[in-house]
Protein backbone atom coordinates (compact mmCIF):
# COMPACT_ATOMS: atom_id res chain seq x y z
CA UNK A 1 0.00 0.00 0.00
CA UNK A 2 1.43 3.37 -1.01
CA UNK A 3 2.05 6.21 1.42
CA UNK A 4 -0.41 8.43 -0.40
CA UNK A 5 -3.18 5.90 0.00
CA UNK A 6 -2.25 5.42 3.63
CA UNK A 7 -2.46 9.17 4.21
CA UNK A 8 -5.77 9.33 2.43
CA UNK A 9 -7.16 6.56 4.62
CA UNK A 10 -5.88 8.37 7.67
CA UNK A 11 -7.78 11.42 6.52
CA UNK A 12 -10.86 9.30 5.97
CA UNK A 13 -10.61 7.95 9.48
CA UNK A 14 -10.28 11.47 10.87
CA UNK A 15 -13.21 12.68 8.84
CA UNK A 16 -15.41 9.80 9.97
CA UNK A 17 -14.36 10.53 13.54
CA UNK A 18 -15.27 14.20 13.24
CA UNK A 19 -18.66 13.25 11.84
CA UNK A 20 -19.20 10.99 14.86
CA UNK A 21 -18.08 13.74 17.18
CA UNK A 22 -20.87 16.04 16.01
CA UNK A 23 -23.34 13.37 17.05
CA UNK A 24 -21.57 12.35 20.23
CA UNK A 25 -21.03 15.91 21.52
CA UNK A 26 -24.70 16.51 22.18
CA UNK A 27 -25.18 13.09 23.68
CA UNK A 28 -22.32 13.47 26.12
CA UNK A 29 -23.28 17.06 26.99
CA UNK A 30 -26.80 15.96 27.90
CA UNK A 31 -25.49 13.10 29.96
CA UNK A 32 -22.90 15.23 31.68
CA UNK A 33 -25.30 17.97 32.73
CA UNK A 34 -28.53 16.11 33.34
CA UNK A 35 -27.37 12.53 33.85
CA UNK A 36 -29.71 11.35 31.13
CA UNK A 37 -29.20 8.53 28.63
CA UNK A 38 -31.01 9.63 25.52
CA UNK A 39 -31.59 6.84 23.01
CA UNK A 40 -33.77 9.25 21.00
CA UNK A 41 -30.71 11.30 20.06
CA UNK A 42 -30.63 9.41 16.76
CA UNK A 43 -34.18 10.57 16.07
CA UNK A 44 -33.10 14.19 16.45
CA UNK A 45 -30.34 13.48 13.93
CA UNK A 46 -33.00 12.11 11.57
CA UNK A 47 -35.22 15.17 12.15
CA UNK A 48 -32.32 17.43 11.22
CA UNK A 49 -31.72 15.51 8.00
CA UNK A 50 -35.40 15.52 7.02
CA UNK A 51 -35.78 19.22 7.77
CA UNK A 52 -32.68 19.97 5.69
CA UNK A 53 -33.88 17.82 2.80
CA UNK A 54 -37.31 19.49 2.81
CA UNK A 55 -35.97 23.03 2.95
CA UNK A 56 -33.28 22.30 0.36
CA UNK A 57 -36.01 20.90 -1.85
CA UNK A 58 -38.09 24.07 -1.55
CA UNK A 59 -35.44 26.75 -1.61
CA UNK A 60 -32.46 25.09 -3.25
CA UNK A 61 -30.18 26.66 -0.67
CA UNK A 62 -27.89 24.43 1.35
CA UNK A 63 -27.17 27.06 3.99
CA UNK A 64 -30.87 27.63 4.59
CA UNK A 65 -31.23 23.86 4.84
CA UNK A 66 -28.54 23.71 7.52
CA UNK A 67 -30.26 26.48 9.47
CA UNK A 68 -33.55 24.67 9.19
CA UNK A 69 -31.94 21.50 10.47
CA UNK A 70 -30.54 23.33 13.48
CA UNK A 71 -33.84 25.05 14.17
CA UNK A 72 -36.04 22.00 13.67
CA UNK A 73 -33.89 19.74 15.82
CA UNK A 74 -33.55 22.36 18.55
CA UNK A 75 -37.30 22.96 18.56
CA UNK A 76 -38.05 19.24 18.61
CA UNK A 77 -35.51 18.82 21.37
CA UNK A 78 -37.00 21.60 23.48
CA UNK A 79 -40.49 20.21 22.96
CA UNK A 80 -39.42 16.71 23.93
CA UNK A 81 -37.55 18.01 26.96
CA UNK A 82 -40.50 19.97 28.26
CA UNK A 83 -43.08 17.24 27.71
CA UNK A 84 -41.18 14.05 28.48
CA UNK A 85 -37.50 14.27 29.29
CA UNK A 86 -37.69 16.52 32.33
CA UNK A 87 -39.77 13.93 34.12
CA UNK A 88 -36.90 11.48 33.69
CA UNK A 89 -34.00 13.31 35.35
CA UNK A 90 -34.76 11.92 38.75
CA UNK A 91 -35.40 8.43 37.43
CA UNK A 92 -32.97 5.54 37.12
CA UNK A 93 -31.28 4.57 33.88
CA UNK A 94 -33.81 1.86 33.16
CA UNK A 95 -36.70 4.31 32.97
CA UNK A 96 -34.61 6.61 30.82
CA UNK A 97 -33.65 3.85 28.40
CA UNK A 98 -37.23 2.74 28.09
CA UNK A 99 -38.86 6.15 27.75
CA UNK A 100 -36.38 7.26 25.11
CA UNK A 101 -36.76 3.90 23.33
CA UNK A 102 -40.48 4.71 23.21
CA UNK A 103 -39.64 8.12 21.76
CA UNK A 104 -37.67 6.43 18.95
CA UNK A 105 -40.76 4.44 17.99
CA UNK A 106 -42.97 7.52 18.01
CA UNK A 107 -40.56 9.81 16.17
CA UNK A 108 -39.56 7.24 13.53
CA UNK A 109 -43.06 6.19 12.63
CA UNK A 110 -44.29 9.77 12.91
CA UNK A 111 -41.66 10.86 10.39
CA UNK A 112 -42.64 8.02 8.09
CA UNK A 113 -46.26 9.05 8.38
CA UNK A 114 -45.37 12.62 7.40
CA UNK A 115 -42.78 11.97 4.70
CA UNK A 116 -43.61 8.51 3.39
CA UNK A 117 -41.46 5.42 3.14
CA UNK A 118 -39.08 6.47 0.39
CA UNK A 119 -35.72 8.12 1.04
CA UNK A 120 -35.51 11.89 0.46
CA UNK A 121 -33.07 13.77 -1.71
CA UNK A 122 -30.37 15.96 -0.25
CA UNK A 123 -27.11 16.69 -2.03
CA UNK A 124 -23.93 18.61 -1.41
CA UNK A 125 -24.16 22.19 -2.71
CA UNK A 126 -22.45 22.96 -6.01
CA UNK A 127 -19.84 25.13 -4.32
CA UNK A 128 -18.67 22.21 -2.21
CA UNK A 129 -19.02 19.46 -4.81
CA UNK A 130 -16.18 17.49 -6.29
CA UNK A 131 -12.64 16.80 -5.17
CA UNK A 132 -9.78 19.13 -4.46
CA UNK A 133 -6.12 18.22 -4.85
CA UNK A 134 -4.21 18.22 -1.60
CA UNK A 135 -0.44 18.43 -1.26
CA UNK A 136 0.97 14.97 -1.88
CA UNK A 137 -1.42 14.35 -4.74
CA UNK A 138 -4.47 13.19 -2.80
CA UNK A 139 -7.78 13.99 -4.48
CA UNK A 140 -10.10 14.58 -1.58
CA UNK A 141 -13.78 15.58 -1.66
CA UNK A 142 -14.18 19.25 -0.82
CA UNK A 143 -17.35 18.50 1.12
CA UNK A 144 -15.60 16.11 3.47
CA UNK A 145 -12.95 18.72 4.17
CA UNK A 146 -15.76 21.13 4.98
CA UNK A 147 -17.25 18.58 7.38
CA UNK A 148 -13.90 18.29 9.12
CA UNK A 149 -13.75 22.08 9.40
CA UNK A 150 -17.28 22.32 10.81
CA UNK A 151 -16.57 19.54 13.28
CA UNK A 152 -13.39 21.20 14.50
CA UNK A 153 -15.21 24.53 14.76
CA UNK A 154 -17.97 22.91 16.82
CA UNK A 155 -15.39 21.28 19.07
CA UNK A 156 -13.66 24.62 19.56
CA UNK A 157 -16.95 26.43 20.06
CA UNK A 158 -18.09 23.96 22.71
CA UNK A 159 -14.80 24.20 24.52
CA UNK A 160 -15.12 27.97 24.54
CA UNK A 161 -18.77 27.81 25.59
CA UNK A 162 -18.01 25.62 28.54
CA UNK A 163 -14.79 27.21 29.65
CA UNK A 164 -15.42 30.86 28.89
CA UNK A 165 -19.09 31.83 29.07
CA UNK A 166 -21.67 32.40 31.78
CA UNK A 167 -23.76 29.57 30.41
CA UNK A 168 -20.72 27.33 30.58
CA UNK A 169 -20.09 28.21 34.18
CA UNK A 170 -23.66 27.30 35.01
CA UNK A 171 -23.38 24.06 33.06
CA UNK A 172 -20.24 23.10 34.93
CA UNK A 173 -21.80 24.11 38.21
CA UNK A 174 -24.87 22.07 37.36
CA UNK A 175 -22.71 19.02 36.66
CA UNK A 176 -20.94 19.43 39.95
CA UNK A 177 -23.78 20.20 42.29
CA UNK A 178 -27.36 20.52 41.18
CA UNK A 179 -28.89 21.66 44.45
CA UNK A 180 -26.30 24.34 44.95
CA UNK A 181 -26.88 26.19 41.72
CA UNK A 182 -30.62 25.99 42.18
CA UNK A 183 -30.11 27.50 45.60
CA UNK A 184 -28.04 30.26 44.02
CA UNK A 185 -31.06 31.29 42.00
CA UNK A 186 -30.23 29.83 38.58
CA UNK A 187 -33.40 28.66 36.87
CA UNK A 188 -32.32 25.07 36.60
CA UNK A 189 -35.20 23.83 34.49
CA UNK A 190 -34.61 26.53 31.91
CA UNK A 191 -30.93 25.69 31.88
CA UNK A 192 -31.77 22.02 31.27
CA UNK A 193 -34.14 22.84 28.42
CA UNK A 194 -31.44 25.01 26.90
CA UNK A 195 -28.75 22.33 27.17
CA UNK A 196 -31.05 19.69 25.75
CA UNK A 197 -32.00 21.93 22.82
CA UNK A 198 -28.32 22.65 22.22
CA UNK A 199 -27.51 18.94 22.16
CA UNK A 200 -30.45 18.33 19.85
CA UNK A 201 -29.33 21.12 17.52
CA UNK A 202 -25.88 19.53 17.26
CA UNK A 203 -27.48 16.20 16.37
CA UNK A 204 -29.67 17.96 13.80
CA UNK A 205 -26.63 19.66 12.28
CA UNK A 206 -24.85 16.31 12.09
CA UNK A 207 -27.90 14.77 10.42
CA UNK A 208 -28.05 17.50 7.80
CA UNK A 209 -24.31 17.46 7.08
CA UNK A 210 -24.16 13.70 6.86
CA UNK A 211 -27.50 13.47 5.06
CA UNK A 212 -25.98 15.24 2.08
CA UNK A 213 -23.60 12.35 1.43
CA UNK A 214 -25.73 9.53 2.79
CA UNK A 215 -29.30 8.39 2.59
CA UNK A 216 -31.99 10.51 4.21
CA UNK A 217 -34.43 7.88 5.39
CA UNK A 218 -36.42 6.78 8.40
CA UNK A 219 -34.24 4.78 10.75
CA UNK A 220 -31.01 6.50 9.66
CA UNK A 221 -30.40 7.58 13.25
CA UNK A 222 -30.09 4.21 14.95
CA UNK A 223 -26.79 2.90 13.52
CA UNK A 224 -25.07 6.22 14.15
CA UNK A 225 -26.63 6.39 17.62
CA UNK A 226 -24.95 3.16 18.60
CA UNK A 227 -21.63 4.40 17.21
CA UNK A 228 -22.05 7.65 19.14
CA UNK A 229 -22.65 5.70 22.33
CA UNK A 230 -19.50 3.72 21.71
CA UNK A 231 -17.66 7.02 21.26
CA UNK A 232 -18.83 8.61 24.48
CA UNK A 233 -18.35 5.46 26.50
CA UNK A 234 -14.75 5.22 25.28
CA UNK A 235 -14.19 8.90 25.98
CA UNK A 236 -15.86 8.88 29.36
CA UNK A 237 -19.49 9.87 29.57
CA UNK A 238 -20.05 13.56 30.12
CA UNK A 239 -16.67 14.69 28.86
CA UNK A 240 -16.61 16.77 25.67
CA UNK A 241 -12.88 16.25 25.34
CA UNK A 242 -13.45 12.51 25.83
CA UNK A 243 -16.06 12.55 23.11
CA UNK A 244 -13.61 14.22 20.75
CA UNK A 245 -10.78 11.79 21.45
CA UNK A 246 -13.18 8.86 21.45
CA UNK A 247 -14.68 9.90 18.13
CA UNK A 248 -11.28 10.11 16.47
CA UNK A 249 -10.25 6.75 17.94
CA UNK A 250 -13.43 5.10 16.70
CA UNK A 251 -13.18 6.74 13.28
CA UNK A 252 -9.56 5.63 12.85
CA UNK A 253 -10.13 2.14 14.23
CA UNK A 254 -13.15 1.53 12.03
CA UNK A 255 -11.41 2.76 8.89
CA UNK A 256 -8.24 0.84 9.69
CA UNK A 257 -10.27 -2.30 10.33
CA UNK A 258 -12.04 -2.04 7.01
CA UNK A 259 -8.79 -1.45 5.14
CA UNK A 260 -6.36 -3.79 6.87
CA UNK A 261 -8.40 -6.70 8.23
CA UNK A 262 -8.96 -8.37 4.85
CA UNK A 263 -5.26 -8.00 4.08
CA UNK A 264 -4.19 -9.32 7.47
CA UNK A 265 -6.49 -12.29 7.14
CA UNK A 266 -5.05 -13.44 3.82
CA UNK A 267 -2.17 -15.52 5.18
CA UNK A 268 -4.43 -17.01 7.87
CA UNK A 269 -7.52 -18.10 5.96
CA UNK A 270 -6.49 -17.78 2.34
CA UNK A 271 -7.39 -15.40 -0.45
CA UNK A 272 -10.89 -16.78 -0.89
CA UNK A 273 -12.11 -16.32 2.68
CA UNK A 274 -10.07 -13.22 3.57
CA UNK A 275 -12.61 -10.74 2.20
CA UNK A 276 -15.53 -12.09 4.23
CA UNK A 277 -13.66 -12.97 7.42
CA UNK A 278 -11.76 -9.69 7.35
CA UNK A 279 -14.94 -7.73 6.88
CA UNK A 280 -16.65 -9.58 9.72
CA UNK A 281 -13.76 -8.75 12.04
CA UNK A 282 -13.73 -5.15 10.87
CA UNK A 283 -17.38 -4.68 11.77
CA UNK A 284 -16.72 -5.66 15.39
CA UNK A 285 -13.39 -3.83 15.70
CA UNK A 286 -14.81 -0.76 17.43
CA UNK A 287 -16.74 -2.86 19.93
CA UNK A 288 -13.57 -4.72 20.79
CA UNK A 289 -11.84 -1.37 21.19
CA UNK A 290 -14.57 -0.21 23.54
CA UNK A 291 -14.49 -3.38 25.61
CA UNK A 292 -10.70 -3.11 25.90
CA UNK A 293 -10.83 0.54 26.96
CA UNK A 294 -13.45 -0.20 29.61
CA UNK A 295 -11.54 -3.17 30.94
CA UNK A 296 -8.54 -0.96 31.56
CA UNK A 297 -10.47 2.19 32.52
CA UNK A 298 -14.00 1.27 33.64
CA UNK A 299 -15.18 4.90 33.33
CA UNK A 300 -13.66 5.62 29.94
CA UNK A 301 -10.60 7.68 29.05
CA UNK A 302 -11.68 10.99 30.57
CA UNK A 303 -14.55 9.83 32.74
CA UNK A 304 -14.88 10.38 36.44
CA UNK A 305 -15.25 7.04 38.16
Amino acid sequence: MSTVLLLEQLLNGLQFGVMLFLMAAGLTLIFGVMGLINLAHGSLYMIGAFAAASVAGFTGSFLLALMAALAAAAAAGALIEVTVIRRLYARDHLDQVLATFALILILSEGTRWLFGSFPLYLDVPAWLAGPVRLPGGIDYPRYRLAVIAVGLAVAGGLAWLIAGTRLGIRIRAGEADREMIAALGVDISRLYTLVFALGAALAGLAGALVGAIQSVQVGMGEPVLILAFVVIVIGGIGSIRGAFVGALLVGLTDTAGRVFMPILMQPLVGQQQAATVGSALASVAIYVLMALVLLVRPAGLYGRA
Binding site: H93, A280, V284, Y287, M290, L295, G300, G303
Partner: peptide, 29 residues
Protein backbone atom coordinates in the same frame (compact mmCIF):
# COMPACT_ATOMS: atom_id res chain seq x y z
CA UNK B 1 -16.15 -8.60 31.77
CA UNK B 2 -19.09 -6.17 32.07
CA UNK B 3 -19.88 -6.33 35.76
CA UNK B 4 -16.61 -4.61 36.56
CA UNK B 5 -18.31 -1.43 35.41
CA UNK B 6 -21.72 -0.15 36.40
CA UNK B 7 -24.51 2.21 35.40
CA UNK B 8 -24.40 3.47 31.84
CA UNK B 9 -21.07 1.78 31.20
CA UNK B 10 -22.61 -1.58 32.02
CA UNK B 11 -25.55 -0.88 29.69
CA UNK B 12 -23.20 0.06 26.88
CA UNK B 13 -20.84 -2.87 27.42
CA UNK B 14 -23.69 -5.36 27.23
CA UNK B 15 -24.88 -3.56 24.09
CA UNK B 16 -21.39 -3.81 22.62
CA UNK B 17 -21.17 -7.56 23.22
CA UNK B 18 -24.60 -7.87 21.66
CA UNK B 19 -23.46 -6.03 18.54
CA UNK B 20 -20.37 -8.24 18.26
CA UNK B 21 -22.46 -11.40 18.34
CA UNK B 22 -24.97 -9.90 15.89
CA UNK B 23 -22.37 -9.01 13.28
CA UNK B 24 -20.64 -12.33 13.76
CA UNK B 25 -23.91 -14.18 13.06
CA UNK B 26 -24.81 -11.98 10.08
CA UNK B 27 -21.51 -12.47 8.28
CA UNK B 28 -20.62 -16.02 9.23
CA UNK B 29 -21.69 -18.15 6.27
Amino acid sequence: LSLRSSGVYFIMLTLAFGQMCFYFAVSSP
